[in-house]
Amino acid sequence: MSKWSTLQDRSFLESNARERAIGIVDEGTFTEFAGPLDRRTSPHLETLGEAVEFDDGIVTGVGKIGKTPVFVISQEGRFIGGSVGEVGGAKMVATLKTAIALADRIAKEFPKAADDEKPVVAISFETGGVRLHEANAGLLAHAEVMDQFQRARGKVPVITLIGSKVGCFGGMGFVAAATDAIVMSEFGRLGLTGPEVIEQEMGKDEFDSADRALVYRTTGGRHKYVMGDCNFIVADTVGAFRAQVAELAKLPVSAFEAMRRIGSAALVEKQLKGVALAAEMQPKDARDVWKHAGNADPVALANVPLDAFKATVKRLAL
């Protein structure tokens, strides 16, 4: 594992779940919950004769950025595609519960605590959703995580980070959409049904999952930034993700309401405007929407370096 200082300049995409977790908070501050030494492997995988991992593919823990306690959940895509099973799901839920409990305690015992002294949660998603080998437990974990988000709302901001190879799909795509703020790199992908599944269900003519240009311009960070599905797009380094979390950690929890995608009548209305626009436009490709948002040359915009993209892109206004 790379040292914290080298991690900051290191590619987020290249890093593993633990490196991301450690690098996203201040040097030396990360304490892992239910780490490899606890050997909490999945009993279901063992029964099925499938390879197990000591952390069940999810790294959880807490660290600090400045004065802010940052609870971290980091999924490992290389272990069974980052799928969420019973143990990993329980780790996610317990971490959220711990963050909420801390927020409650601070509110009670230190009512004058500053915004940057209150906890936040950062979740690095790298997953296709439910682990099919333990589907019921995995599904339940999704629901329980969502439930904790509702409890955290207005108390503990939950920040999504997506910059990994697997991206964030399946049920976890819904989960990510329900968080307060979403930070992506251009290599991150966010969606519900994964590209291969769309192709399988709708046919290659509808969606060719081997056409990665199509996949990225439908689910990738740049497209999600244009659409407003993610709030921030950052460079592919652990340090860049960390810097964005650090910025957000200073904000009062109330500031996150405006970043959300769902969760109020006004947001529902806004989403419906998007649906109406799609019905009106009948877009054949993501590029049509980029154009509609005011980007004259979507092909070039998709290819320019990220800084130039951020400087010139027009985002869809709904």
Partner: peptide, 12 residues
């Protein structure tokens, strides 16, 4: 920006 990879190799 001179290399223009075929669609199947893109990762962004």
């Amino acid at each position: 920006g001179l290399y223009e990879p075929p669609a199947r190799f893109r990762n962004w």
